[in-house]
Amino acid sequence: WPEDVKLFQPFEVDQILMNEFANCLSVKTFLNMADLKYQIELRSNAEFMSPSREVPFLKVGPILISEFDSIVTFISAKGYSLSGGLTSEQFADVKSYITLTKSTLNNVLLYVMWVHEDNYNMITKQRSGFGYSWPLYKILPWRKRKQVVRLLKEDGWINKSLDQVYAELDKCLQALSNKLGTEEFFFGSKPTELDALVFGYLFTILTTTLIDSQLLEKLKKYENLTEFCQNIHNLYFKNV
């Protein structure tokens, strides 16, 4: 593994949004679990530097790889895998839960940040335009919101009410809680890619302040999931 691998992401204090933070944290967690070194590079235009226009992205030598799935696949091809000891059935289950987590939690965070009017006007709009002067700081949030609305429409989420979105969140959390049970990790005695991804999203919900606290309240109902987050944080970020 090269010594000069860099992970590019937006600024955390003033700019990064919930789904971006969750995705960046998921990748960092995966890298930490695999004991792979990397340097964090903060850029206000990280989204536009990314080959897929999504953050985070890794720079490994001359190669740029963006988004969780592609990064995991790239690193696995290099011989670093968190799921190498699983059976084929367990590996298929990991993939299924990853799909559930991403398809639900990412859409929940996109909806809450870009469709929820109070969050959009008081949080998202300012953070999305951070680092740019007029007129870009006005244009970029407007353009991004149109993109997110189109994506949510394609996934059948744009016409959901806020209560329906929270219900989808609750169903996903229930499924993850049932799978985790009283175990330390989701599959066996060691973490997999699923543990990294779930931690990224759930820790983001636990540590982000929004206009209302519904996301946090839904998650707090599942004590094993909040304990899971604390455990992963202590294991892989305590000395970071």
Score class of each variant (00 low, 15 high):
Phe68Ile: 01
Phe237Tyr: 13
Lys125Ile: 02
Glu223Val: 08
Val165Pro: 01
Ser76Val: 08
Gln174Arg: 07
Ser177Val: 06
Thr204Trp: 12
Leu86His: 06
Glu54Lys: 15
Asp14Arg: 10
Val148Ala: 00
Glu184Asp: 08
Glu54His: 08
Phe130Gln: 07
Ala175Glu: 09
Glu67Gln: 13
Gln90Phe: 00
Gln174Gly: 07
Lys28Gln: 15
Glu217Trp: 05
Ser70Asn: 13
Leu162Gly: 08
Trp114Ser: 00
Leu140Thr: 00
Phe74Thr: 04
Leu194Gln: 04
Ser88Asp: 15
Ile16His: 03
Val240Leu: 13
Lys102Ile: 07
Ala196Pro: 08
Arg43Gly: 01
Asp4Val: 09
Leu216Asn: 10
Leu225Cys: 09
Leu25Ile: 06
Tyr166Gln: 06
Trp157Ile: 05
Gln174Asn: 14
Ser70His: 12
Asn234Lys: 12
Gly129Lys: 05
Pro191Gly: 08
Cys24Asn: 13
Arg150Val: 03
Pro191Cys: 02
Leu86Tyr: 08
Glu20Thr: 00
Asn107Lys: 02
Ser133Gln: 10
Trp157Leu: 07
Phe74Arg: 04
Asn32Glu: 10
Met122Pro: 00
Tyr132Ser: 11
Thr73Gln: 14
Leu17Asn: 04
Thr104Tyr: 05
Gly79Gln: 05
Glu20Asn: 03
Phe57Leu: 08
Lys190Asp: 13
Lys37His: 12
Glu117Met: 05
Ser177Trp: 12
Leu140Trp: 00
Ala22Cys: 09
Leu202His: 01
Asn45Asp: 15
Tyr38Thr: 04
Phe8Asp: 05
Asn32Arg: 11
Gln174Cys: 06
Asn224Met: 03
Glu168Asn: 14
Phe237Arg: 10
Tyr38His: 01
Ser177Phe: 08
Thr73Val: 09
Tyr137Ile: 03
Trp157Pro: 06
Ser76His: 14
His116Pro: 01
Asn23Met: 13
Gln230Glu: 15
Phe48Leu: 00
Ser26Gly: 11
Ile158Asn: 15
Lys171Trp: 09
Tyr166Trp: 13
Asn32Val: 05
Val55Asn: 08
Arg43Ser: 14
Gly131Gln: 11
Lys138Tyr: 10
Gly181Lys: 09
Trp1Arg: 03
Ser81Pro: 05
Val112Trp: 02
Arg145Asn: 09
Phe11His: 14
Pro141Trp: 04
Ser133His: 07
Phe68Asp: 04
Gln39Ala: 12
Leu105Ile: 12
Leu25Cys: 13
Phe91Gly: 11
Ser189Ala: 12
His116Val: 02
Asp35Met: 03
Glu183Cys: 05
Ser66His: 09
Gly129Val: 03
Lys125Glu: 05
Phe228Tyr: 15
Asn45Thr: 07
Gly188Pro: 08
Thr207Ile: 09
His116Ala: 01
Glu41Ile: 14
Arg150Met: 10
Lys220Pro: 01
Ala167Leu: 13
Thr104Gly: 00
Lys179Tyr: 05
Glu184Val: 08
Val72Leu: 06
Tyr80Gln: 10
Ile211Glu: 02
Ser76Thr: 10
Lys160Leu: 15
Phe130Met: 09
Asp118His: 01
Tyr38Ser: 04
Ser213Tyr: 01
Ser44Leu: 08
Leu7Pro: 01
Glu12Asp: 13
Trp142His: 06
Arg145Lys: 15
Ile158Gln: 11
Val60Met: 10
Leu173Phe: 06
Lys144Asp: 00
Glu223Tyr: 04
Asp195Cys: 00
Ile63Arg: 10
Gly156Lys: 08
Phe130Ile: 03
Glu12Ser: 14
Asn23Ser: 15
